[in-house]
């Protein structure tokens, strides 16, 4: 199994191709939307490229879940994710670091969870299961 550094390198290279950004722009904490300018079609492109690059299957809504909080109205109140919602987030995205997000869990900031580091951790977990 490749090391975390090797996975990170490949993830970065994938993002360079998918998002048409320079390698230097990519840092572990870079957010895909805010920092790297990803749009909705880019997320699909990234998934397709990662599947090919790492030889894995990425089920829809697993890496970039679109509707985590739709199942229960108690997950979000007044535009903020509730503690119940945060638990759901931990279950659905165990590979995401939500420590910063949970301090001010504005729903609109959810996309900040999608970072280069997050993808790397997700891939690491996937490959460990193979």
């Amino acid at each position: 199994m490749p090391s975390q550094a090797e996975i990170y390198q490949k993830v970065s290279a994938t993002l360079v191709d998918a998002l048409n950004v320079e390698q230097e722009e990519i840092k572990p904490t870079s957010t895909l939307q805010g920092d790297l300018g990803a749009e909705s079609i880019d997320f699909l492109d990234i998934v397709f490229r990662l599947e090919r690059e790492f030889g894995i299957k990425i089920p829809r809504n697993e890496l970039f879940p679109e509707s985590i909080f739709q199942g229960d109205p108690d997950f979000v109140q007044n535009g903020k994710v509730t503690s119940k919602g945060l638990d759901e987030l931990r279950t659905k995205m165990p590979f995401a670091d939500i420590s910063k997000f949970e301090k001010n869990p504005e729903l609109t900031a959810i996309s900040d969870l999608f970072t280069v580091e997050m993808i790397t951790k997700y891939i690491e977990g996937k490959l460990a299961k193979v």
Partner: peptide
Amino acid sequence: AMKLARQR
């Protein structure tokens, strides 16, 4: 579509 999208 995805092929064209990738070519930008």
